[in-house]
Amino acid sequence: MAMTASTPSTDPHAWLRRQTRWHPVEIAFWLATLLPFFLFPNYLVLASQIAITALFALSLDLILGYAGIVSLGHAAFFGLGAYASGILSKHGWGEPLTGLLFGAAVAGIVGYATSFIIARFRHLTLIMLTLGFGLLLFELANKAHWLTGGADGLQGVKIWPIFGRIQFDLWGYTAYSYALIVLFVLFLVCRRLIHSPFGLALRGIRENSVRMPAIGAPSAAHIRKIYTISAAIAGVAGALLTQTTETVALEVLSFARSADTAVMLVLGGAGMLYGGLIGSIIFMIARDQFSGIAPQYWYFWIGILLIVVVMFLPNGILGGLSTLLARWRKP
């Protein structure tokens, strides 16, 4: 075997296994997501919104944090999932789990189709293209009043009980449980993905896109794949929003949603799996607490926050914390 000469610190297998192992902080984090049931039973609706936003941020992290694709139009896939499941239910099929799958499929298919364009471009052109696709879809949904309800929003969404039994309640008990479970399951998928050979290839693309072809890597194929997966997950997040609110507003496709989610991800720390989750928790709670102030002043603080994060906290809150921790451990 290859390991005969290796000391524990350089044993390749042990080190790699350690990277994928669950950290106690991770377990604590997921246990803490159960706290709202006991501590803040009046805020379960908000909690479900946070879980949905976190799932969307997680999907953005896959392409932005891991593959380095800067997208300003990711809400396109969130919105596609939201409208797909909403329209499905409006036309008589309100079963939630198949609704999620339908949302994922529609977003995933559109994601796959556009991924061929995305994978060909980089830099400013790529940013403009993602922005353009997002705006285009927004305008389409706005104009297709007969299908989407346009600016009035999609009315008449009726969601059946989960497994035919568990009703959605007014207090968000079901909504939060449902959203949290979906988030956790898809988080497990993403966690496995980024610790897989494919996840390593994505980090390779982010770290050095010039070297990848020189080791024989089909970067474009990798990008198409992760873009499709990310779009499908964003579609699930959108479908979750539709199902827990029983309506679809045009806002699901807006540039503001794309930008907000990028802000949350960068605030928490991109490319760290938990960054999007932490970022969306902070962002959503802060917005809820300051909901009294006019939206333009809310964006003042978001703007300041962005400037501060970019200038002083390049890896977001999580990155800053881990740097602090590392310093504290070896004084």
């Binding site: 932005l64 800067v70 300003l72 830099h123 400013l124 940013i127 930008a259 990028a262 802000v263 960068v266 991109a270 006019a294 333009q296 002043y297 964006y299 003042f300 978001i302 703007g303 300041i304 926050l305 962005l306 400037i307 994060v309 970019v310 200038m311 390049p314």
Partner: peptide, 22 residues
Amino acid sequence: SELDQVLLTIGIAFVSVAVAAW
């Protein structure tokens, strides 16, 4: 990175909107 540039300048644009509204 272009992401940093995009985020910084979006941040400035956000602030400008708020300041103008103020």
